[in-house]
């Protein structure tokens, strides 16, 4: 990040940089739609000022998929882990951070990691399924991943 902006990281990404994959859902830190990775950690981008992140590495949903979909994205697609898709970028970012630090998360760990990422459409069950499936894929060396 090189920004000196007073505005939030979220506004900086969406408005200044045109990276609209990160979503504004509440602006109050309650929904997780704006999640990005800052030095590998999940951060609610609506809750930090862009200038506080000078010199740190920020990865958004746009930066996850290099060639084709990541294993997590593929698993979300196949398990039907979204409907409207508005929570999905934040969920995928959250799941990416989780699998980067825990190769085989238990269901409770997945739930804990996703608590605070609100999804109003699909009732979470399939998001759990997708994270489990992505962990399988990665373990088998199939699919690109965190």
């Amino acid at each position: 990040m090189r920004s000196t902006a007073e505005r939030s990281l979220l506004d900086c990404l969406r408005i200044e940089l045109g990276l609209t994959g990160t979503k504004y859902g509440c602006g109050e830190g309650d929904c997780g739609a704006c999640s990005v990775l800052v030095d590998g950690q999940v951060v609610r981008s609506c809750q930090v000022r862009a200038r506080e992140l000078r010199g740190r590495s920020v990865v958004t949903i746009e930066g996850l998929a290099r060639d084709g979909l990541t294993a997590i994205q593929q698993a979300f697609l196949e398990a039907g882990s979204f409907q409207c898709g508005f929570c999905t970028p934040g969920m995928v970012v959250g799941a990416t951070a989780l699998l980067a630090r825990t190769r085989r998360p238990s269901d409770d760990e997945i739930r804990a990691a996703l608590d605070g990422h609100l999804c109003r459409c699909c009732g979470y069950g399939r998001i759990l399924t997708a994270v489990r499936r992505a962990a399988d894929l990665l373990e088998q060396g199939r699919g690109s991943g965190p």
């Binding site: 949903i61 898709g85 999905t88 970028p89």
Partner: peptide, 9 residues
């Protein structure tokens, strides 16, 4: 439209 949704596009 799933591939667009999972990639933020």
């Amino acid at each position: 439209e799933g591939p667009l949704k999972v990639t933020g596009r």
